[in-house]
Amino acid sequence: MTNILLIAFAISLIYMGIANRLSTYINILAVQGIILFGVSFIELIQINTINLIFILFETIVFKTIAIPLFLNYVIKKNKIVREAEPFLPDFLSVVIITCIILGSFILSNIITGVHIQKMFFLVAISALLSGLFIIITRKKVVTHIMGYLVIENGVFILSLSTGNKMTMLVNTGITLDIFVSVLVLGVFVNRIGNTFEEMNVDNLTNLKD
């Protein structure tokens, strides 16, 4: 069951590669949140209850509901109507994301000697690299945040594969951190929207030598 969910997660990554509309991105993020909820529920059922509740809370409340809503708000407020505007053609994006998944597969096979669930590893690394890929190839500032969130999702999956040995306090800190950073980023996106006409990263290349 976990594996199926993970594969679904990987599919969502590919879909993200070809998605054009910003709302699609947000939806995908929400879906990913749900998938993560499922995975963590299955995987972590045996750890202590408070911790489990907290993690489930994080996936459902933060990842699935709060952040997508917040992003939606940001998009509405800044009247971002244009598409995702990648630097690369969609076709190439798909090819590259496929390559990333393939590469992660090879990598997960190479790595030996450590007790790890390969499927988790594969999907986590793919998510990570896809997130970076999205950040690198998209023009919109908002899409960068989305890429960042995809990376965070990858990290979440990776941490799930360890069976989560972090203590409660640390976990809380980390979660809060992510949440706050997304908030701060969102605030700045708003500011950028106010300051510049287009929320393009092209506007943000004045500081250079």
């Binding site: 950040i135 990263v201 290349t205 250079k208």
Partner: peptide, 17 residues
Amino acid sequence: VRFIQNGNMRHYILYGV
């Protein structure tokens, strides 16, 4: 060498990767 600080944040991330 001076292509590095080109103002483009996407590249900055790319360096690390």
